[in-house]
C-alpha cells in the first residue's frame, strides 16, 4: 500500500469518526443500550448459571462477552445506511472526481468500523467490571474478545455496505437487519450456555459467526483458556471478514461503473 493510500485512508477515517463523535445522542444511546442489556438480562437470567455448563458461577461474567459481541453486530450492520446517504448526497461522487485513492474510500469504512467497535467493546467491558463481572483470562483474554468483535463488526459492516451500494434502498437494509438481528443473537451462546440449549439449536449456533466471536472471546477470558477454540473460531472469523471486505470492494467497483 502506498503512503498516499495510507494518508488518504486516515483522512477519510478521521472524517467518519468526527461525524460519529458529533452525534451526542447517538453516542449516548449506543452507551445506554449495553447498560440496559447488562442490567436487564443480567437480572432476568441471574439464576440460570445454577443449571451448570456456563463455566462460571456469576451470570454477569458469562453475559459480558455476549453483550460485547451482540453490540458489535448491532452497530456494524447499519454501516450501509451511511454509505447510502453518502451516495444520495453526492459526497461519494465528489470524492470520486478527486485524485483520492479508491481503496482509501473502502479502507476507511473498515478502519472506522474497527475503531468504533473497539471503543464500544472496551466501554462494555468496563461497565461489566463496574457491575461486578470478573475476567479471569486477564488482559490477553480481553484483547481476544475485542479483536473477535472487531472482526465480526468488519464482516457485517462490509456486508451492510455492499448491500447499501447494491440495492440503494434504506428499506432493504432495515428489513434485512431486523430480520437477522434477533435470530443471529438468540441462535448463539449470548445468553445461554450451549450445554443448556436444545441440541439442534446448539448445532445451528456452531455455524453462526456471531457465536464464533462469543466462543473465541469467552474461551480466551476463561481462567484456563482453550486456545484451540480461540484459533479455530478466530481464524474462521478472519476468513469471513476477508471475504466480506472483498465482496464490498467488488460492489464498490460495480457502483463506480453504474454512476
Amino acid at each position: 500500500m502506498s503512503t498516499e493510500t495510507l494518508a488518504h485512508t486516515w483522512y477519510m477515517t478521521q472524517r467518519q469518526l468526527m461525524a460519529i463523535v458529533r452525534q451526542p445522542i447517538f453516542l449516548l444511546i449506543s452507551l445506554i443500550q449495553p447498560v440496559i442489556w447488562l442490567f436487564l438480562f443480567g437480572n432476568l437470567f441471574k439464576r440460570v448459571v445454577e443449571l451448570g455448563g456456563f463455566g462460571t458461577t456469576t451470570y454477569l461474567d458469562y453475559l459480558v462477552p455476549g453483550i460485547v459481541v451482540m453490540s458489535a453486530l448491532g452497530s456494524s450492520m447499519w454501516a450501509g445506511m451511511g454509505t447510502l446517504e453518502e451516495i444520495e448526497r453526492g459526497t461519494l461522487n465528489r470524492f470520486l472526481t478527486t485524485p483520492v485513492s479508491r481503496s482509501a474510500l473502502m479502507n476507511a469504512n473498515v478502519v472506522q468500523n474497527g475503531i468504533s467497535t473497539a471503543c464500544q467493546s472496551v466501554i462494555i467491558v468496563l461497565l461489566g467490571l463496574l457491575g461486578g463481572a470478573r475476567y479471569p483470562g486477564g488482559a490477553g483474554g480481553l484483547i481476544v474478545l475485542v479483536a473477535a468483535s472487531i472482526l465480526l463488526g468488519t464482516v457485517f459492516g462490509a456486508l451492510s455496505n455492499a448491500l447499501g451500494m447494491l440495492v440503494r434502498e434504506r428499506e432493504s437494509i432495515i428489513g434485512i437487519n431486523t430480520f437477522l438481528l434477533l435470530p443471529l443473537t438468540f441462535l448463539s451462546s449470548a445468553f445461554m450456555a450451549p450445554a443448556q440449549m436444545p441440541s439442534w439449536m446448539a448445532a445451528i449456533a456452531d455455524f453462526n459467526p456471531v457465536n464464533w466471536a462469543m466462543v473465541a472471546g469467552r474461551s480466551a477470558l476463561a481462567a484456563d483458556p482453550d486456545w484451540g477454540d480461540v484459533l479455530t473460531r478466530g481464524g474462521a472469523l478472519l476468513a469471513l471478514a476477508v471475504v466480506a471486505v472483498w465482496l464490498s470492494t467488488r460492489t464498490f467497483r460495480s457502483y463506480q461503473k453504474s454512476v
Binding site: 483522512y11 461525524a19 453526492g90 461522487n93 465528489r94 470524492f95 478527486t98 485524485p99
Partner: peptide
C-alpha cells in the same frame, strides 16, 4: 467539479470540508 448535488459533508464544518478536499489534492 461542482456537481448537481451538493456533495459537501453536512456533518463537518465548512473549513473541514475544504481542508480535506485540499489534502486529497
Amino acid at each position: 467539479v461542482v456537481a448537481q448535488k451538493s456533495g459537501a459533508d453536512p456533518a463537518a464544518t465548512g473549513r473541514e470540508n475544504l481542508v480535506l478536499q485540499g489534502r486529497l489534492y
